[in-house]
Amino acid sequence: MVYEREVLPIEPPRPKVDPALLLEQPQKVRLFFTKLDRAKYISHLDMNRCMSRALKRSGLPVWYTGGFNPHMYLTFPLPLSLGCESVYECVDLKMTQKVDFDTIAQKVNACLPPDIQVIAAGEQKMDQKEIAWADYEICFDAQYGLKEKLESFFNQDEIKVIKKTKKGEKEIDLKPHFSLLSMEEKDGVLTAMMRFATGIELNINPTLLLDNAPFELRVQSLKRLMVYNKELKSFC
């Protein structure tokens, strides 16, 4: 049996930087991007690789860490769960030279697939630790009586579930950590707009609530729409 050796695509070398143009302090940049359709099946690790390769191919003067194994500095404040779409993802990086934000967005988009596109680039105004809430659009197959069942389930005094953490499993009450903003049924689809606690201190995945419903749910799509701080100001 003959095994064929996998040939990996050759990535362009890091762009050469004029030492005279280097900044004393790297320019901090925050990119906001979408992750839609087929891209929802890309894991966080692959998303990191995708963005790294796009930035390399863009020719932008991205800042690298020092040391024996230098690598591109990328930080995703709120990684998305596999199978979930989003219109408001973000990644933090640094530039060794001052670059216009619109230019950054255009050059990166030219190297990204259509399902992953930068919608804005700007300064890192808020700290990642300020993230506290996120809005989601959840679409269900509109089965008979589903709207009433969901309203009854969400309106319980408490909803105890088992949440897995790095330290093990623990029981928590989800009731204080989510809210139903609206729910509408149209053309056989029940759409729920919901808000969940999220961030470094407490991160509630919507599936944790939906998987503990005492009845069958057929979820068509799950999409993150916006991310907020504790004062419900858009994360920027």
Rank of each mutant, 00 (worst) to 15 (best):
E216S: 12
K28Q: 14
L8H: 12
V118A: 06
K107H: 12
F235R: 02
S152I: 04
P19I: 06
I200Q: 14
E24D: 15
T75S: 13
L82E: 05
T34V: 06
I104Y: 07
P206C: 05
V227P: 00
A192N: 01
G168K: 09
P70R: 07
Q128N: 13
V108S: 05
A213M: 08
Y3T: 05
L174A: 00
L232P: 00
G145T: 05
T65K: 11
F68W: 13
V62N: 03
D37M: 12
N229Y: 07
R57G: 06
D46Q: 07
D135I: 05
A134K: 01
E6M: 11
F32Q: 01
F154C: 03
Y64T: 00
D115W: 12
K28N: 07
L8K: 13
F32D: 00
L80Y: 04
M72V: 12
L209P: 04
E89N: 10
A192C: 09
Q25I: 12
A39P: 03
Q143M: 11
A142G: 02
F68K: 01
T165A: 11
K56Y: 15
R5Q: 13
L78Q: 08
A121S: 07
G59V: 04
C236L: 11
P77V: 07
T103V: 15
D173L: 07
C90E: 02
V7F: 10
K56D: 01
N69A: 09
I10N: 13
K98C: 07
